[in-house]
Amino acid sequence: MLTPMLTNRTSWLRTFTVAFTVLVLNACVSAQPPVDQSRFSEPYTRSVLILPPANQTTAAQASELYYTSLAVPLTRAGFYVFPSLLTQRIMQNEGIIDGAQLDNVDLALFRQMFGADMVLRTRVTRWDTSYVVITGSVTVSVEYELVSTHSGNILWEYSGSITENTGSQNTSLLGALLETALNTAQQDYIPIARELNRTAFARVPIGPYHPRYLTEEEFAARLAAWREENQR
């Protein structure tokens, strides 16, 4: 009787050890690196107004189409983002089609008229296809800036570019020519732009609606420290 019990106990001990090891290893793997919430140099950064992108490419529709890809990832980063369609209509009614038209506007205006803590400025610098015989590619390049409407300071900036290869793997020359032409013509810019946005906004300090945002006490401490710093 004793031997089976010991064997059974050994077996459970081994089971427990394996489970415990897995638990520890898994905890190590799934623990996400803490987000550095102090990277914004100013404390009040709750809401974002997305300005129409400045289009520095030859693609006439780039600004308008790219604009549609910005709000959702920013809300997922935890910010209150003013509604895209309405903001775009308001801007268009004011004759603002391209973000470059707003370069010299006093940013305090966006706080007064929209209640925005920050504006997101973007410049689309590439929105094009490159096509040479059997090689082809589509490139989207964007420069981003989050600017405080309280101070006018740039709180975050990023510049990124993604190129999608549209060349053919076809071994016949004619087939490769046709396939590359077709791939390049059909390639949609928006999935590339969305991927670029994901990469960019993963680097933004998180906003107040993100589950890992500062607690009220932490925010109050940060606000107090910021006030003290600015009163010196």
């Binding site: 709000a71 959702v72 809300t75 910010f79 209150y80 983002v81 003013f82 509604p83 895209s84 369609l85 309405l86 609606y209």
Partner: peptide, 10 residues
């Protein structure tokens, strides 16, 4: 999500 209800409202 933020802004969705305002856009729908219009």
């Amino acid at each position: 999500p933020p802004g969705a209800m305002l856009e729908l409202a219009v």
